Amino acid sequence: MKVPEHRSLKEKQRLEREELILQVAQDVVLEKGYRDTSMDEIAARVGIAKGTLYLHFAKKEDLMFAFFEREMQKILQAIEQQPVAAEMSAQAKLESIVSIMHKDPSGKRANLLFILFNSEDFKIALQQKSLDTLQRISDKVMAYLEEGKARGEFDPDIPTGILLNSFFSVLSPRSHRRLFQEEGYTREEVMFCVQKIFFRGIAKRSS
């Protein structure tokens, strides 16, 4: 995380430590899962006292919220800042969002988000707390789907809400985690095929 020059040294150190905490927490959750991750271990791995960790995050849930919101904000900012030409098809715009969602060569982000989304005692609160960010991402996808219908690219008889749900269900990195980890496919191979299936399936049929 690059810290603006005008910040005080103390503030820079605080932000740098917070970034390190988030990175270490990510590694611990990936190793042990959400339930078995402890604040004690995170503090020990960072090399700080547990009390110092609590100055940044009052509890484990707050730490995970911070990580999740940070990653969602990165995705949202990339989506909102990407150059979109007027002549681009709606499909091309949606494909660019898929590319942003999968822009994580290590696969760590996708794996961690998968763990958090599938933690029964956490995912509902997680989604509620980040509702605004998630809604803004969904709104952008929804707008492109509606645009595709209006342009005659997508089947107008399929409700947009179903298209939206299918988009995230089919094209989310977490949906294909097993293929990456167990079947040996690369992310590029999987997403090429999955996007082909999705966009062919929602395409408007010629009369």
Rank of each mutant, 00 (worst) to 15 (best):
R35K: 15
K50M: 10
T37W: 02
A43I: 02
S130N: 02
E189R: 10
S130V: 01
L20N: 11
E61Y: 06
R205L: 11
P4K: 11
R187A: 13
V29L: 08
R7C: 13
G51S: 11
K196R: 14
E87M: 08
M39W: 10
Q73K: 15
G33M: 09
A78D: 02
Y34P: 03
K204G: 00
F117L: 15
N165L: 14
E18N: 09
I42K: 01
R45D: 06
I158L: 02
K123N: 15
E87S: 12
L9V: 15
P105M: 06
K12F: 06
I75Q: 03
R109I: 12
I48L: 10
Q91E: 15
T160R: 04
P105S: 10
E147G: 05
Q77D: 12
K103G: 02
Q128N: 09
I124C: 01
G33A: 08
R174G: 13
L116D: 05
V141I: 09
E61S: 11
L63G: 05
E120V: 09
A66C: 13
A49I: 02
H6P: 00
K196N: 12
P159G: 00
I124Q: 11
K60E: 07
R109H: 10
I75P: 00
E153M: 04
R14T: 13
K74Y: 13
L145W: 00
R70H: 13
G184M: 10
G51C: 04
V84W: 03
K74P: 01
T52Q: 13
Q23G: 05
F168A: 00
P4M: 08
E61F: 03
D155F: 00
R45N: 08
L94H: 01
A49P: 01
H176F: 12
L22A: 06
E19I: 10
V28K: 01
K2H: 14
Q195P: 03
V98M: 12
I21N: 03
H6Y: 15
V3H: 10
R17L: 15
A92P: 04
K50E: 10
K149C: 00
F65N: 02
H6V: 14
A49Y: 04
P156G: 08
F168Y: 01
S172N: 09
R70I: 08
P83H: 07
S138P: 00
K123D: 11
E147V: 03
D27N: 12
S99I: 09
S96F: 05
S96E: 05
K204P: 07
D27C: 07
H102G: 03
E153P: 05
E41R: 00
K140L: 09
P105V: 01
P105D: 08
M88G: 01
K129D: 01
F67Q: 07
H56K: 03
D139F: 06
I48Q: 06
I197R: 06
I115H: 11
D139V: 04
L22W: 05
I124L: 12
D157W: 01
R17E: 14
L55K: 15
S106I: 05
A86Y: 05
F67H: 09
L20G: 02
E31V: 08
R35W: 13
K108C: 07
D132Y: 12
L9S: 13
S8C: 08
K2N: 13
K59T: 09
I137L: 04
S166V: 03
V46T: 00
D104K: 07
K59F: 09
G201L: 09
D157V: 07
E5C: 07
D139G: 02
L76C: 02
F199E: 05
F154H: 03
